[in-house]
Write a protein that binds this DNA or RNA. Structure first.
Lengths: 153, 153
DNA sequence: CGCAATTCAATTGCGCACAATCTAATTACG
DNA sequence: CGTAATTAGATTGTGCGCAATTGAATTGCG
């Protein structure tokens, strides 16, 4: 894969686009790998992320979950309603600040954590690289994300 | 960031989940970075990917574009209709195999390529890492994607 | 105190992403 | 040859992801 100078009359995908495309593809590959593992739990991948956030710390406001996952209320409101309908979480207004809706795990939602342990193991196997490699890649991606966010002010 | 053995009664996000989450976040950061750059061109990011594919090789069947980008007809059909309505591409049945719909650039679609040169430059700047770093990261991601796909048979 | 600005969540609208299903065209095979 | 299997694309339905708007609650400031 050689790098040629940009030539508007002889277009090639630039490295930046290749990198972006590689991330795009890897992200989709991840969600596709998670899908069959999460299906028995009745969760989609973004719902699983929300459950992880709640397993780490129960009874959080929507805003806190959104900050953690980088999602806004337009995404979370319907998603949380579906989790509520599945009987995994409860939604109640904070008494001290009635603007906030606090999300808490139901007994069923808390127990799902045990069924989910197999998921991480299966993913670890599918990732198929060493611990150190995974750490490095994770940190590079986090750094890249930070630079992109910073570049966008 | 220390690694502790898995303990179902004291849950922590596993490295695999952290890696997945990092990719998820980086992918979103990329699309957010592209968004304001592509807006003046009247393109979304997936539409931009399709245009790149067509700038590389004009007059492709939907299937070929889908294979290139990892998208199916359920995603591409409406997307291509929008590109057609924007006057950037034309859709016509292949005469030799009427199952296929060939997508070709209009004059307007071809010219858009010149306006798009600034996009890659801006992304390159936002990515903010060296050429070698970007190459390495790209290749690691491609390898990871391949392993994930392979693990899913 | 009282009004303006801010914050939080919900809602609306648009555009992917993908499974499942459908139709039409082509190819394979007995 | 003719039927079955395959292939291409479109359609439908569900669920994100995000911008923009709304409405209610809270905070800040004169």
């Amino acid at each position: 894969m050689q790098k040629k100078p940009r030539n508007p009359d002889n277009f090639e995908i630039e490295l930046d686009a290749q990198l972006c495309f590689a991330i795009y593809g890897a992200a989709h590959a991840f969600t596709r790998t998670y899908k069959p593992l999460l299906e028995p739990l009745g969760l989609t991948y973004p719902q699983y992320l929300v459950m992880i956030a709640l397993w780490e710390e129960d009874d959080q406001p929507v805003k806190a979950i959104g900050d953690r996952l980088g999602l806004d209320s337009g995404t979370l409101s319907p998603l949380l309603k579906r989790l509520e309908q599945s009987g995994l979480v409860a939604r109640k207004r904070d008494r001290d600040d009635e603007r906030q809706v606090r999300i808490s795990l139901t007994a069923k939602g808390g127990e799902l954590r045990h069924q989910a342990t197999g998921v991480a193991q299966a993913i670890g196997k599918a990732v198929g690289c060493s611990f150190d490699e995974a750490v490095t890649l994770r940190d590079e991606l986090i750094a890249l994300k930070q630079r992109l966010i910073k570049a966008g002010e």
